[in-house]
Amino acid sequence: MPRAKYIGVIEDLKTKIASGKLAPGDRIASIREMCDAYDVSSIVALRVFRELSDQGLIEKRDGEGYYVLPEDGDNHADKIICAFRPLRDMNTTDNFGNRIIFGIMESALSNHKHVVFPESCMRLRNRIPTDEDVKILADEVFSIPGIAGIVLDMRIPDESIRRHILPRAGRIPVVVAGRSAKAPVKASFFPMEEIGADVAKLARRSSAAVFLLFPASEATFSDIRLLEHAFLKTLDADPAAVFTTREFTTVSREKDREVAEIAAKHIAAARGKAFVFCGADSMAGYFYDLMKEHGLTAPQDYILMGFGGFELSEIHTPKLATVALDQAAIGRNAVELALGGSMENSIAAPYAVKFNETF
């Protein structure tokens, strides 16, 4: 595959800057001059300027053009800040954060960058960070020299990012990993609305008569409401045929059994099969076990689909249908965005439906 033109232009300009042919304070060619000198389009020229800016080599001065920046004494930025929840013990039900971190490390190392885990990220374990948590995190992060990019946990609120991260980031790229973002930062995310619509289309084609939806908590998947709304909108079913609740959590066993009792009645009373969509594989596995106590099994009495694509979906008996997410791609894409490897401000990670044995 031929190498993209912009890469050659970037390498040539970086060589000139490193050799001193383009010294700090020198003006870089205009867009028109660059197009003529390198025989490239204006889109390519703009990408070159943007990526050299992201790498801290040049800056744009309004009304004047682009200029070479002086070295800041840190040689060059060589650190990716992984401001993400701590690693947890690997398990079969939820390795979401672990897989994202593995993707961050894989991409950073392949780009010859060090990964730094701020100590204050221990505050992110098992809860939504408070504004004070993010302030403490920012104080630690911006004391670290040579930052090439910052990758933030999806559970850090946009407002806290605006208040504590962005005012101090300057030219350092900031990326949220795991969700879309309303703050003016880059984002590596799953296309939840697309996923919700796709699952709803499967539900409609299944000829199910009743539809049950059990969303996961927003602490598990920050964009889960986007998925929920897209599923219900695309399903467009008679409200009387839809049962949805957030009270099935796999945390309160008593409450879960109450919900399971209601769900079993819906499934048993349906004139056709029911379609059940759970917001996590662990929820789907637990739901299956509870329905079995009521003499109901999938796919004989209902269709069951989980979400996540974790190991549980493959080792459960029967194997669970699921929306398998490529969590490591979230991490890899986040680093690509942080290092200027993409012209986009956001990248959607891939997913796939695995039908297995409960569909």
Rank of each mutant, 00 (worst) to 15 (best):
D94Q: 00
R61H: 07
C82Q: 03
G56F: 00
V323E: 01
E336L: 12
E11V: 06
G97F: 08
D89Y: 10
F117I: 01
V134W: 01
V141R: 09
R205N: 12
F243R: 09
A4M: 08
I144Y: 14
M1R: 02
A177I: 02
E11Y: 03
Q327T: 15
G73L: 12
A77L: 13
H112G: 06
M343Q: 12
L320S: 01
M1H: 09
L46H: 12
G103F: 09
G341A: 07
L69K: 15
K14Q: 13
L337G: 01
C121N: 02
D54L: 15
A263S: 15
V174W: 07
L226M: 11
H164I: 04
A37Q: 05
K5Y: 03
V115M: 02
G8P: 11
I262T: 15
S252W: 02
S19T: 11
E194S: 07
S143W: 06
I128F: 11
I347Q: 03
A200R: 14
N333G: 05
C82R: 04
A274C: 01
N75K: 08
R204S: 12
G272N: 15
E344T: 11
Y67I: 08
S120A: 06
T249L: 14
E344S: 05
A29Q: 12
I147H: 13
G272H: 15
Y286Q: 09
A219S: 13
T234W: 03
I165Q: 11
